[in-house]
């Protein structure tokens, strides 16, 4: 139905257009609406048959031909994703609080000014950055190490791979409760293990002491996601031809040198894609914290996504929550943007 309407539209425009082109007669010209238009133009005037060249090109263009495929999803995405983001931005400029309706008549950046003077935002922002960097870098390093070890043609490699990847498949809710048991200061496994080897001095109230809270969370998240890094790196390692290892060996490179100079530099693409996924997960680590601490993790472990939820849904300060969400969005964009640009430059997009 859509194509018929489209055909009718182009026909109308075609008849009003005076810039005619003889090439229109070529029988090889077929577009998606072609069946109808051809018939219609045959039945009407020759002027329509001799269509405008610009229009002809337009109708032959892949853009319009592919429109039915990407058009509807693009429309949905634009409306529900980008439209929602834009609306969220507008809300962040209002002063919307409580259960009434937002007042769009007076927009200001007051909420953003308030963010800058809010100590809990400063803390959440700092924690988010720390979490982002530490979690991503450490997970990548750990994943790479494990991948290199698993790649050593060991026996039951598949079993190891599954074991390392399993935590990734668990939900944050499960791992959060699991780690709250692990970290329990009196009977948790971590402190028990420390006591077992005589390191009583190192036992801590991991999730209560503000000094260790964030580190404990980063460690738990690392446990969950380094398996994912391992799989990505393993795929990267498998793509490197065996001959390179041999050549390096023949040249007398030590194992460390082999990996440092030859193998790891070739894993840049793996690192990139794993890092982007990790960063996005770090920004969304909401579930983990929410299960552990509810909406108030305290300033030592608060992150922006938890703060956003707390402000918007616990305090019903929608505009302020929207402002936090925009900061979070900008951070995500700051990570994804360069990645997409690099991909684009390389022609991989």
């Amino acid at each position: 139905m859509a194509s018929r309407i489209f055909a009718a539209l182009t026909r109308d425009e075609g008849s009003s257009d005076t810039d005619e082109s003889p090439r229109r007669e070529e029988p090889s010209v077929r577009t998606d609406g072609g069946t109808v238009t051809d018939g219609a133009s045959d039945a009407t005037t020759a002027a329509v048959g001799d269509d405008a060249s610009a229009l002809g090109r337009l109708r032959r263009s892949r853009f319009l031909e592919s429109l039915p495929f990407w058009g509807p999803p693009a429309l949905l995405v634009f409306f529900f994703v980008y439209g929602a983001i834009a609306w969220n931005f507008v809300i962040s400029l209002t002063g919307w609080e409580g259960l009434g309706s937002p007042d769009y008549s007076s927009l200001s950046t007051e909420m953003y000014a308030r963010l800058l003077s809010d100590p809990s935002f400063t803390a959440a922002f700092r924690n988010t950055l720390v979490l982002l960097l530490a979690f991503t870098v450490l997970s990548l390093i750990l994943g790479l190490l494990v991948a290199i070890l698993v790649d050593q043609k060991i026996r039951i490699e598949n079993t190891f791979r599954t074991i390392y990847l399993l935590p990734m498949s668990l939900s944050f809710v499960v791992t959060a409760i699991f780690w709250s048991w692990m970290y329990n200061p009196t009977n948790g496994l971590i402190n028990e293990a420390l006591r077992g080897v005589g390191l009583d001095a190192f036992t801590q109230a991991w999730l209560a002491d503000p000094q260790f809270k964030l580190a404990a969370i980063i460690f738990a998240l690392m446990w969950q996601f380094s398996g994912y890094c391992m799989v990505v790196y393993l795929a990267g390692l498998r793509a490197i031809p065996e001959s390179q290892y041999e050549a390096a060996r023949i040249d007398g490179a030590s194992t460390i040198k082999l990996y440092w100079r030859v193998i790891i530099p070739q894993l840049r693409a793996s690192t990139m894609s794993a890092a982007v996924v990790l960063v996005v997960f770090a920004l969304k680590a909401f579930d983990f914290l929410f299960v552990l601490f509810g909406v108030n993790p305290g300033q030592s472990a608060d992150i922006l996504s938890v703060m956003m939820y707390r402000v918007a849904f616990d305090r019903i300060q929608w505009a302020y929550g929207s402002a936090v969400a925009m900061v979070l969005f900008a951070m995500t964009l700051g990570v994804i943007g360069p990645y997409l640009y690099v991909q684009y430059r390389r022609g991989e997009l």
């Binding site: 139905m1 998606d32 072609g34 069946t35 051809d38 018939g39």
Partner: peptide, 21 residues
Amino acid sequence: DSATDDADRLTRRHYVAGAGT
């Protein structure tokens, strides 16, 4: 006319377009 005209012109592209529609 269009029906008869195009009966022999149905190519893969038409099918694809139709499927998209």
